[in-house]
């Protein structure tokens, strides 16, 4: 009950979450320190295309003859910060819209949620492609767009979570006593939705990784020749039957990242669900 840190702490003590944390740490290590460990420059051609692994190229070379290991070690950082930015932005905007709609109700609620409906009718990949095709590609723009694409989903979840809180007696008391709306929202309503907020943040992070990796795979995320896991899969797909490693190696890392993040997010969700259920 007392603070959300204890919930997080309890969630992390489950075996599931521990496995998730281990996976995330391994990927995190590659992401953060990979750049300093790579044997070659990631974007220069150093050998024959699609060479098998050997002493000089531990994971072989890609379709253009670049070192797969180097590209792998270098290709997680951009993806990671983009995902964090996108998820953070999406959750922040969605939270703002969802709480405002729940708190104000009436016309404000209707207008905000219809606006979210409009945004929601663009599947997020399509939404990003639409703007990228007009504005040109840039990593910052892509993450902002993914964040905006997340906003309607987050706002619906948080509005739903906030409605019972807004209708609860303690919030009614605060309103009847004329406490300033900003204070009511920040001090009374927001603490009441921290649990769904935590769960949502976790899931959105995982989904942001998936979305941005997908965009890179389609060729609209991180621009070549820079290294990126999603991009690597797309570039080397045609060579899959000859040399599977250039595709499977980045896929393994994406898989570990997604699985790890999901294990942690789900155990938080479950712990939160249990704690809330007890109330």
């Amino acid at each position: 009950m007392n603070g959300n840190l204890s919930v997080l702490g309890r969630a992390m003590r489950t075996g599931q979450a521990r496995l998730g944390l281990v996976l995330l740490s391994v990927v995190g290590f590659v992401v953060l320190f990979g750049h300093f460990l790579m044997p070659y420059a990631p974007d220069t051609i150093v050998g024959q295309p699609l060479a098998d692994p050997d002493g000089s190229f531990l994971l072989g070379t890609d379709i253009l003859g670049r070192d797969v290991l180097s590209r792998l070690l270098d290709g997680g950082l951009t993806l990671s910060w983009m995902a964090v930015l996108a998820a953070g932005l999406g959750v922040f905007l969605g939270c703002l819209v969802g709480l405002t709609a729940a708190y104000r109700g009436g016309a404000v609620d209707a207008v905000l949620m219809r606006a979210m409906d409009v945004l929601l009718s663009f599947p997020e990949i399509i939404f990003v492609l639409l703007f990228v095709s007009m504005l040109g590609r840039s990593t910052l723009l892509t993450s902002v767009l993914v964040g905006i694409a997340f906003m309607p989903g987050v706002s619906r979840v948080l509005r739903g979570a906030a409605l019972p809180v807004v209708a609860s007696e303690y919030v009614l008391w605060a309103r009847a006593n004329g406490l300033p709306p900003r204070q009511v929202l920040l001090r009374e309503v927001l603490p009441g939705v921290t649990s769904p907020l935590m769960v949502e943040t976790g899931m959105r992070l995982v989904w942001a990784v998936a979305a941005i990796a997908s965009l890179s795979y389609l060729g609209f995320g991180i621009a070549p020749p820079a290294a990126d896991w999603g991009l690597m899969v797309g570039e080397n797909q045609d060579g899959l039957s000859v040399a599977p490693l250039p595709v499977l190696a980045p896929i393994t890392l994406i898989l570990m990242m997604a699985l790890g993040g999901n294990l942690v997010a789900e155990s938080v969700a479950r712990t939160v669900g249990r704690t809330e259920g007890k109330r």
């Binding site: 995982v206 989904w207 990784v209 998936a210 979305a211 990796a213 997908s214 795979y217 999603g230 899969v233 797309g234 797909q237 899959l240 599977p244 595709v247 499977l248 896929i251 994406i254 898989l255 997604a258 699985l259 993040g261 999901n262 294990l263 789900e266």
Partner: peptide, 18 residues
Amino acid sequence: SSLFTALPAFVVGMLLIA
């Protein structure tokens, strides 16, 4: 199923191709 909710579709597709 929890793994699949987190995976991008292209990863699943690529694994099936492989």
